[in-house]
Design a protein around this nucleic acid. Structure first.
Lengths: 232, 232
DNA sequence: TATCGTAGAATTGTGGAACAATCTAACACC
DNA sequence: GGTGTTAGATTGTTCCACAATTCTACGATA
């Protein structure tokens, strides 16, 4: 079951990585959304965007469906899709799901004594980071670290669900540009998390991660409130 | 945050329940799949099915996309969609995700002391069940019970993720027709779960639910093995 | 002035035909 | 046996059409 990373079944079907137009369009749109190119609430008119992307309207619709499933877009019947506008409740909700997935993943990793090389690599790169490291780099490493733990469980479904969560968190980031601690501090925090994970005391790890996630959630919520005060 | 069920925001937009052709088609397909009308592994040819359903090929594709997201269908590029064939690993994986979601939901419910009227109603109906109750009735009550706990957390995202899990579990059921205890036993087990939940000892509840889920998982896995022995 | 109603434009939802790219199966060939 | 080759089926994508719905602007009415 968890042998997926060890030895490959030689008879397993190998499928080349091709990209359908739909996938490519979804990628392009995702990029625009997470770049901040598109304002929250923007309506994505079908004729407009399909023309801009040089694809058929049907194809565009299929692409939006993907992003709707990721939570980045929302559709209202007969009114098309628009970029999700995050509210306070959304952030809390996202982090509830994230906590459910991540805490369970940690338990499994600790219980099974699984190695998490991806997380170790992330921490190493964190350590090598200068204070001038770009915001985006820090965010990416942060994401990598947590994703590595999830993937270490070897559960496709948990990974898929978590991918959705991460994508929504990136949306938060893109929309809110929250305050982020200095790279060194973020690095230290993740080093601590990794060490606890390796030490293997379940309760301590869990408590540490819950606090970490709680802080992140609060951080984003604050950023949201700050924005609301500006626009109000 | 958790006031969603208490008082409604009077200004909240009310949207009538209309059904798009895509949704209706997805429902019809889901029905066929969970009925067992369609064999596992069946390929759903676009021209064929769109004609049968009396819809356009595009519309059919959109409908399949919904079921793909639910895990009931799978798509391979240029080879169309086919009914998911469950393997042993899938069942384990489904239950890993289920456990992650459900255990966290339980913790939240216990910690907050939330009432779970839906679960209470389910248990009452369980109690009223005769031994001749249909298999389907028991399964539905079982689903309702667990779903009620999830919904009690008030988290849309956890609920959505759990809906996917339940849909996959129904697929297991449809494909495997596993052994199911007599209604009275199932009822007793859920009564026990509910009582523990109401008593509010977090560790005990968690242990009980983990065992319950573990048993269910094992039950399905056994059914799968039994099937494999037949076909082998 | 504010509300209402309505015609017209814009947009979405769905259907249908077309065609290139890809897959599948059958068959001939070595 | 293995290997090309070819024809047919199927998918992925585009383009066009049109009904249903929503949006917008503007004039009528209280």
């Amino acid at each position: 079951m968890s042998a997926s990373s060890e030895s490959e079944d030689p008879d397993r079907e190998i499928r080349l990585r091709t990209v359908s137009v739909v996938d490519a369009a979804a990628d392009a749109l995702r990029e625009m959304i997470l770049d901040g190119t598109l304002e929250p609430g923007t309506r994505l008119r079908e004729t407009d965007f399909s023309k801009r992307l040089g694809i058929a309207r049907h194809t565009f619709r299929a692409a939006t469906q993907i992003l709707i499933n990721e939570g980045l877009l929302r559709r209202s019947p007969n009114r098309g899709v628009q970029l999700t506008i995050l509210e306070g409740g959304d952030i809390v909700d996202i982090f509830r799901l994230r906590e459910a997935l991540e805490i369970e993943a940690i338990r499994q990793v600790v219980a099974a004594g699984t190695e998490v090389p991806g997380a170790e690599r992330a921490v190493e790169r964190f350590n090598a980071l200068g204070d001038a490291a770009s915001w985006r780099t820090v965010v990416d490493l942060d994401m990598d670290f947590h994703r590595a733990i999830i993937d270490a469980t070897g559960s496709d479904r948990i990974s898929r669900a978590y991918a959705g969560v991460q994508s929504e968190i990136l949306l938060c980031m893109a929309q809110l540009r929250p305050h982020y601690d200095r790279p060194a501090e973020v690095a230290a925090e993740h080093r601590e998390l990794l060490e606890a994970l390796q030490a293997g005391d379940p309760d301590k790890v869990e408590k540490l991660f819950r606090r970490h996630l709680g802080d992140a959630s609060k951080n984003l919520t604050n950023a949201l409130q700050a924005r609301e005060e500006v626009t109000a």
